[in-house]
Amino acid sequence: MTQGPRRLPAAADRVGPRSAKTVTVSLDGGTVTGLAGQTIAGVLLGSGVLSWRRTSTTGAPRGVFCGIGVCFDCIITVNGDRDVRACQRRAADGDVLTSQHDLLPARRPAGYNSAGDQ
């Protein structure tokens, strides 16, 4: 089965959005292309990228969930600014996107950490 999200080609779209300029962004060093006016999530999903963040505790992948700025699952670092909701921010040409995998501070033994005692 062909899998995953994609942007509709304008020619095949009954709603027929007027063609737009492309925007090119980088994601962790790779290049992703979308259309001007798309959100970062729209650009990534439209290019078949389904997830771009890993959770802190389990390392599970995450992408868009709520799609309307509520769940913060889709956060990504944009030009050095952390925690930007990809579903809310419009992509700008040249945006440097960095996926986030924020690890927790080093785990401690059950109950307490006496590292400061040393």
């Binding site: 059950a110 109950g111 307490y112 950490n113």
Partner: peptide
């Protein structure tokens, strides 16, 4: 107290997160 909690309440009890960080 932390030692007692670990010993008596077991690993399922959430950690008190005692940290003598300074």
């Amino acid at each position: 107290l932390v030692d007692q909690a670990v010993a008596e309440l077991g690993p399922d009890f959430p950690s008190i997160e005692y940290h003598r960080k300074g």
